[in-house]
């Protein structure tokens, strides 16, 4: 299936709850365009064809929608900077998308501290994207703390994947 950008926009508007409520983890799990985590509660029907370089699916899978962090840290690794540089380049070429940057923490640490830490991580990504020319008006940040792990095991292999910031796209700039 190949969708034109216009058809994609209509489909997205029909199937997604647009940007009124950026919490894509709300009940029903249909609030946004989803990350690459493959979590079953994210509606993936509106993400477009991953072979279409202008699709959200392409952004998520090929550019990479996610960067990871060391324990308690919000500094960007070289690998994270490389992914974010590619994200910025894509976002600058596709100005029609609004951006929510989600910050997440692993389950080590208290609920409150992890909320603050997730916010730090999201802000770190946002600041980097701004330096790469992405308009701050397109971006919002949100922290989920340790509330939405990507991996559910309780060892470092999972924790490392859960300490993340995810760049989530939705249609329509100027949220």
């Amino acid at each position: 299936m190949t969708l034109t950008p216009k058809a994609l926009m209509i489909l997205a508007a029909l199937t997604l709850a647009a940007c009124q409520n950026p919490d894509r983890y709300g009940a029903g799990g249909d609030g946004g365009a989803g990350g690459a985590g493959g979590t079953p509660y994210v509606d993936t029907t509106g993400l477009g064809d991953p072979s279409d370089p202008r699709s959200i699916a392409y952004f998520n899978q090929t550019v990479g929608d996610m960067v990871h962090f060391a324990v308690d840290q919000s500094t960007l690794s070289d690998q994270a900077r490389s992914i974010l540089t590619a994200q910025a380049s894509w976002l600058n070429q596709n100005p029609g998308y609004a951006i929510i940057i989600e910050g997440h923490a692993d389950e080590q640490g208290t609920r409150e501290y992890n909320l603050a830490l997730g916010a730090r991580r999201a802000a770190s990504v946002q600041q980097f994207l701004i330096t790469q020319g992405v308009s701050s008006a397109r971006m919002k940040t949100i922290s989920y703390g340790k509330e939405r792990p990507l991996q559910v095991c309780s060892d470092e292999g999972c924790y490392a994947q859960n300490r993340r910031a995810v760049t989530v796209l939705s249609v329509g700039a100027g949220v």
């Binding site: 919000s74 916010a119 730090r120 999201a122 940040t141 922290s143």
Partner: peptide, 9 residues
């Protein structure tokens, strides 16, 4: 309470 702005709480 805590308020976070620009990543700082």
């Amino acid at each position: 309470f805590s308020l976070e702005r620009g990543g700082n709480t």
